[in-house]
Simulated scan of single mutants.
Amino acid sequence: MQGVAMVVWRKMGKKGFSSTSRALKSFNGYGYQINKSPPLLALDIPDIWTLHSTTNHGPPPPPANNSNEQTAAIIDGKSIAEEIRSGITGEVSRMKDAIGKVPGLAVILVGQRRDSQTYVRNKIKACEEVGITSLMAKLPEDSTEDEVLNVVSCFNENPSVNGILVQLPLPQHMDEEKILNVVRLEKDVDGFHPLNMGNLAMRGREPLFVPCTPKGCIELLLRSGVEITGKKAVVIGRSNIVGLPTSLLLQRHHATVSIVHAFTKNPEQITREADIVVSAVGLPNIVRGNWLKPGAVVIDVGTNPVEDPSSEHGYRLTGDVCYNEAVRVASAITPVPGGVGPMTIAMLLSNTLDSAKRAYRFT
Score class of each variant (00 low, 15 high):
180 L>W: 10
84 I>D: 00
346 A>Q: 07
217 C>G: 01
360 Y>G: 00
320 D>L: 13
216 G>W: 01
179 I>G: 00
44 D>F: 12
230 G>W: 01
65 N>G: 06
337 P>C: 09
19 S>T: 07
129 E>D: 15
348 L>N: 06
240 N>K: 15
287 V>S: 01
182 V>I: 14
336 V>W: 13
192 F>S: 00
56 N>Q: 05
166 V>G: 01
150 N>R: 15
89 T>H: 11
180 L>C: 11
146 D>W: 03
4 V>Q: 09
49 W>L: 06
94 R>D: 06
321 V>W: 10
276 I>H: 04
30 Y>M: 02
126 A>F: 12
332 A>P: 13
335 P>Q: 13
139 L>H: 12
116 S>Q: 14
70 Q>L: 01
303 T>H: 02
321 V>L: 07
330 A>G: 13
161 V>N: 07
301 V>I: 13
214 P>Y: 02
344 T>Q: 11
280 A>W: 07
175 D>S: 11
297 V>A: 02
36 K>D: 01
229 T>G: 03
18 S>V: 07
141 E>M: 12
301 V>A: 12
304 N>F: 05
135 L>D: 01
346 A>W: 05
314 G>Q: 14
127 C>Y: 15
282 G>A: 08
198 G>H: 04
179 I>M: 09
98 A>H: 15
208 L>G: 01
356 A>I: 11
315 Y>D: 00
139 L>P: 08
272 R>M: 10
16 G>M: 07
148 V>R: 05
20 T>W: 09
288 R>Q: 13
177 E>D: 11
138 K>T: 14
359 A>S: 12
277 V>T: 09
110 V>M: 14
128 E>S: 15
68 N>P: 00
346 A>V: 12
312 E>H: 14
39 P>A: 08
61 P>Y: 01
352 T>V: 11
320 D>I: 13
149 L>R: 10
127 C>W: 13
160 S>I: 10
360 Y>C: 12
222 L>D: 00
203 R>M: 02
41 L>H: 05
162 N>G: 06
6 M>H: 08
68 N>L: 13
150 N>K: 15
228 I>T: 01
226 V>K: 03
255 A>V: 04
181 N>W: 07
278 V>I: 15
307 E>W: 04
30 Y>E: 09
150 N>Q: 14
354 D>N: 12
79 S>V: 14
64 A>T: 09
264 T>A: 05
170 L>W: 09
99 I>L: 12
288 R>F: 07
343 M>I: 12
332 A>W: 14
152 V>C: 10
258 S>N: 11
99 I>C: 15
210 V>A: 02
131 G>S: 13
166 V>W: 05
343 M>V: 07
